[in-house]
């Protein structure tokens, strides 16, 4: 990037110091050296000016109150040195697959078979007697598509921690119902919505949906409109083009009787 280019660049480039060049004459070696020195000096000055401008902008930005600045998105950080993670890693070794933290919440990834033992250890030794939440998540791109996430709370230290287990459609997860009774209905809900079974659960049945429901709704491949309802079983009430401009939803039900059978070919 030479300074001879016109100063119509985006602001991240060198600020406009329009260089005025002498008219072209036959360059001798000395003149060339002088020009190079001049160019180097100008580049250095430009870089310094740019640094000053950036610093000034950062200072203005820092002086603004936090809600007027751009949002600082949190990132995942390694939390292997956290004393709790260290204690768990020494006791269980390979069962703790990773320890990271996001926005201040420590998250431990635990191997599937040892979650009940890890949970018992958290409760007995580290005071995490309170299970705040147990939920599932579906990541269909992964081979082990389901996540079961446990949020724990300790009254003694006031700390919250998250445990995660990954599993696929067939492998059951050991239950933590003996550790915290609050897990009972939460695990039933995960089974209901995702199809993840929990080994050793006293009552592994559907909870929010009726017993004969077909499918597991919160999986990503289960359509929002449902598979046994609406347009799937009453196609004559739903127009082909029905639906809003964004294309989701099943349209709306028109107050007209179903189309006669002989008008539809082969229906």
């Amino acid at each position: 990037m030479s300074d001879r280019e016109p100063p119509s660049k985006p602001p991240s480039e060198a600020p406009a110091e329009t260089p005025t060049e002498p008219t072209a004459s036959v360059p001798s070696a000395e003149e060339e050296a002088a020009k190079k020195a001049e160019a180097a000096a100008k580049a250095k000055a430009a870089a310094e000016a740019k640094a000053v401008a950036v610093a000034k902008k950062a200072a203005i930005e820092a002086a603004k109150p936090p809600w007027e600045r751009d949002a600082v998105t949190p990132t995942w950080e390694e939390a292997g040195e956290d004393p709790l993670a260290v204690a768990m890693a020494t006791k269980f070794g390979e069962a703790i697959l990773s320890a990271r933290s996001y926005a201040g919440d420590l998250t431990l990834e635990v191997e599937l078979g040892s979650i009940a033992k890890v949970a018992a250890e958290f409760k007995a030794r580290h005071g995490f007697t309170f299970l705040v939440d147990l939920c599932g998540a579906d990541y269909p791109d992964r081979e082990k598509r389901f996540d079961v996430v446990y949020q724990l709370h300790s009254f003694t230290s006031g700390r919250r921690i998250r445990l995660r287990v990954t599993t696929d459609e067939e492998t059951p997860v050991p239950t933590v119902c003996e550790v915290w009774k609050a897990a009972n209905w939460c695990e039933r809900e995960v089974y209901d919505m995702y199809g993840v079974r929990f080994e050793g659960h006293p009552d592994m049945t559907r909870i929010l949906l009726w017993e004969g429901f077909n499918g597991h709704p919160l999986r990503k491949d289960f359509p929002v409109e449902g598979i046994d309802t609406g347009a799937a079983i009453y196609p004559e009430y739903y127009e082909d083009e029905a639906g809003p401009i964004t294309g989701t939803g099943t349209g709306w039900m028109q107050p007209k009787p179903p189309v006669e059978a002989d008008e539809e070919a082969g229906e």
Partner: peptide, 18 residues
């Protein structure tokens, strides 16, 4: 009353909070 550019921000990939 409103933080800056609150409407157009996207959630980071893989980020999770409780």
């Amino acid at each position: 009353l409103m933080a800056k550019k609150a409407r157009v921000l996207k959630a980071p990939k893989g980020g999770e909070v409780y």
